[in-house]
Design a protein around this nucleic acid. Structure first.
Lengths: 214, 214
DNA sequence: GACTCGAGTTACCGCAAGTAACATGCTAAT
DNA sequence: ATTAGCATGTTACTTGCGGTAACTCGAGTC
């Protein structure tokens, strides 16, 4: 009942929890996100109720699983974002980091963003909304903070930074999602095109001659 | 057995289908996306198997339901995008149209984008991925087409337009989603901020004095 | 009048989430 | 040594939903 013992038990529980998460990871990455709790428990060599003792419900397991990957991704994004370099370089490095991550582990990415996929029609899979949003939101908020911290945006800078943070993250996400599905160009080209967009090339482009309207 | 009769039956079936869709719409908008097939059938005054005869499976019903709303939204977006006005005005009008739509009917929006939400933990709800993506994808492709058709982007214009189309749509979507949840500012302000972003204000902004790095 | 055919129902299957109640083994205080 | 307590684990169950099979009913056709 003394401290050391409690710590000992807690350590054991934490270790177990990590083992379970790793097993869950393997299953989810193999079977897709519709993996059942039974399957995950089996992979971990135990049975369902233990999972429920550790994670409450399926959403809890999902959240824990997602947190690991989300934290890891955010760490590498922060590194790219904080690197000492010119702004455009930093932006491109950040975009590239994100895209490289989703390219390297599309299974993880699809799990985080599109939890329900693959499998027969009617498989419920994990639920999204509560979970995919957080990654986007967290990325948006982090980016907003960096923007507000580093850029001089005049009055209303905080709000502007947040809008931009979420907007840029969404841009990155949607373009990345599309790119990952169709692979219409190299990663470097995609990064360049997106950076160009952020650098105002849309506004600077000329109208097409003979096009409709003006 | 002749043509007119077949047409008559088809008409009847189509009418029924529309009725079912409207009932499904009501239920989904009331109960959230975790509405069960039983509940939808009950609202329509019939029982499950009929739904399955008409829509195959739950995904089919969802797809039909989503298509209605998606088509309607795309129509209004096209109108804003094709209006005879300056580019910035058109961009702002399109953003505003989208945001107004999701603001006016958040239930519909949440259904299309975050099918699983609300309700107790563990409700499976509809699946996403197969469904929320299509809306984003279709918007992205449409925008890409307009961009490529109207802007002079030099070599590689088609690919650039597609990247931008999906990127801009993603920006709009993520910012809109965040905004809808937190309402940190008026719609007009949000529109202005996003347009500013697209107009290159991020690149043009000065570094904050005393900030880290350069 | 028997026959088809589409619309509809009841009653069921399978399966996954989540829970209760029971078993077992380790630590610790008496 | 014995026994209380607690974490860890199991089996076996309930509940609820997606999906389907098999039957019923009513209207029009030869």
């Amino acid at each position: 009942m003394d401290t050391t013992q409690r710590t000992e038990q807690q350590r054991s529980a934490d270790r177990r929890r990590r083992e379970l998460l790793e097993a869950a990871d393997r299953v989810v990455l193999r079977d897709g996100p519709q993996a059942s709790m039974n399957a995950i428990a089996a992979e971990a060599g135990i049975t369902k109720p233990i999972l429920y003792r550790h994670f409450g419900d399926k959403g809890g397991l999902y959240a824990a699983l997602a947190k690991r990957h989300t934290d890891a991704l955010l760490d590498s994004l922060r590194a790219a974002l904080d690197a000492p370099a010119e702004r455009r370089e930093r932006v491109e490095a950040t975009l590239d980091t994100y895209l490289a991550a989703i390219e390297a582990r599309p299974q993880v990415y699809r799990f985080l963003m599109h939890p329900s996929e693959g499998g027969q029609p009617g498989d419920p899979g994990f639920d999204v909304g509560k979970h995919s949003a957080p990654l986007l939101r967290r990325m948006g908020e982090e980016l907003a903070q960096v923007i507000e911290e580093r850029l001089d945006l005049g009055p209303g800078s905080q709000q502007l930074a947040r809008v931009w943070g979420h907007g840029i993250v969404g841009m990155m996400h949607a373009a990345g999602d599309w790119w990952l599905g169709e692979r219409p160009c190299s990663r470097a080209e995609l990064v360049g095109s997106l950076a160009d967009l952020l650098w105002g090339r849309l506004a600077a482009a000329g109208d097409k001659i003979g096009g409709p309207g003006f």
